[in-house]
């Protein structure tokens, strides 16, 4: 398994929205490489015939009735907000488009 480069870590940090500085990157890249090298041991252990497990206890069809239940008041909803205006969450300007 190839070691993870500093550039790759920087790209991942952007995807994960973490502003890592050069020192962070220098520190993190080799650490992640060591971890990845270690976890790479699993490659080839399970063949194509082995199904993946996403949920440890197999269950299906857990549904809720379509009945309204009480939620939060706007005061509760907004209680933790860094900034509020017009009963809405005030957020800095949004650059990108919706997906």
């Amino acid at each position: 398994m190839p070691a993870i480069s500093r550039e790759e870590v920087a790209h991942l940090a952007t995807l994960a929205r973490i502003d890592l500085d050069d020192t962070d990157l220098d520190h993190l890249a080799p650490q992640l490489s060591v971890i990845l090298e270690s976890v790479a041991s699993i490659s080839g252990v399970a063949g194509d015939d082995v199904p993946a497990t996403s949920h440890p206890i197999p269950m299906t069809n857990v549904f809720r009735e379509d009945v309204v239940t009480p939620g939060l008041t706007p005061e509760q909803a907004l209680s933790g907000a860094p900034e509020v205006e017009q009963q809405r969450f005030s957020v800095p300007r949004i650059l990108g488009d919706e997906q």
């Binding site: 809720r64 379509d66 009945v67 939620g71 009963q87 809405r88 969450f89």
Partner: peptide, 23 residues
């Protein structure tokens, strides 16, 4: 539907902001 996809909050196009929300 009466409620949202994953919670019991109602839906109403004209409701006051942040009145149909839950954790």
């Amino acid at each position: 539907t009466n409620t949202k996809m994953f919670c019991g909050c109602g839906q109403d196009f004209g409701a006051e902001p942040n009145t149909l929300v839950c954790p």
